[in-house]
């Protein structure tokens, strides 16, 4: 009796879980399918569930814009911004986790609070700064902005992971003659590697998907894939099939990447919980 009831409950939970997952995934699936329709099929209401798939939208997209140019920008900007962010935030998080001062807590909260500002609030000053320093429409400009806007998150995450590392292990390193540098690179970083990896992954994803600054600070030379998508949405009216094809092309790399590294990501994000 009780057994059948738990089984029933499990069944309901499973169905509910799938329903929610499908519901959340549906827009992405729809976008993916629409990319393989022709334009009339794409806008027909009610939508055609069965259609003859075509690559014409993809052909058009590749004909109009240089996908690889945008993709290269996305990769270069995301990777470099992430690397620089890690280079800055690992020492910062080390200091905050292991050498805290009376103001450490406040500093952390203040850093996080800067993430709560709407970016548009600082658009004008940032734009003027970028123009004055010649960083408009440059990869360096976006790398700097991405790195800075992600710092609060990467520092916080690394801080949390570092706090999980037992202090005596670092002290043992110090007793064994490790310099500060060796302590960080040979003891702390190997121990916190899952955390560092998931922090890097998250930073990569955030950089890849960032839209506001890329639209406002780049036009052609440094434009990443988010700009590539946007360029299909405006001038000559909406072309849903082409827009969907472009979007699929833009999100595919990061989706594949995220899926491939999901084990790492989950392990990192639940590191503190399970230990």
């Amino acid at each position: 009796m009780a057994r059948t009831r738990t089984r029933l409950r499990q069944g309901v939970v499973t169905i509910l879980g799938w329903a929610i997952a499908l519901w959340m995934f549906f827009p992405i699936l729809w976008m993916f399918l629409t990319g393989f329709k022709n334009e009339p099929d794409a806008i027909s209401t009610p939508p055609h569930l069965f259609f003859s798939p075509t690559l014409s939208s993809y052909r058009d997209v590749f004909a109009r814009e240089d996908y690889w140019h945008f993709a290269t920008n996305s990769v270069v900007i995301s990777v470099l911004a992430t690397v620089v962010a890690l280079l800055v935030s690992i020492p910062a998080a080390y200091a905050m986790a292991f050498l805290p001062g009376p103001r450490t807590r406040m500093t952390l909260l203040w850093m996080l609070s800067t993430r709560m500002l709407p970016p548009v609030g600082v658009l004008v000053p940032i734009y003027l700064l970028a123009r004055a320093t010649g960083l408009l429409d440059s990869r360096t400009g976006l790398i700097v902005i991405y790195m800075l806007t992600n710092l609060p998150i990467t520092v916080w995450m690394l801080y949390t992971f570092f706090r999980e590392v037992p202090v005596p292990i670092l002290e043992a390193g110090r007793m064994d003659g490790a310099t500060r540098w060796q302590e960080v690179t040979q003891v702390l970083m190997p121990l916190a590697l899952p955390g560092i990896a998931s922090t890097g992954l998250l930073s990569l994803i955030l950089c890849w998907n960032e839209t506001f600054w890329s639209l406002n600070l780049t036009s052609s030379i440094a434009a990443p894939l988010t700009t590539f998508i946007a360029s299909f949405s405006s001038p000559e009216g909406l072309f849903f099939a082409k827009l969907s094809a472009a979007s699929t092309l833009a999100v595919a790399p990061i989706m594949v990447f995220g899926w491939a590294s999901q084990k790492q990501l989950v392990r990192g994000l639940t590191f503190g919980a399970v230990k």
């Binding site: 005596p168 292990i169 002290e171 043992a172 110090r174 007793m175 064994d176 003659g177 003891v187 121990l191």
Partner: peptide, 30 residues
């Protein structure tokens, strides 16, 4: 003086071994 330069070695209550190194590497580190 830095801990290592004092010529002292410490054994911690929690052992504080390096979990990512094998026994040989643990002893070899210093």
């Amino acid at each position: 003086t830095d801990p290592a330069r004092r010529g002292v070695a410490m054994v911690f209550q929690s052992y504080a071994l390096y979990p990512h190194m094998n026994v040989y590497r643990n002893m070899e580190f210093s």
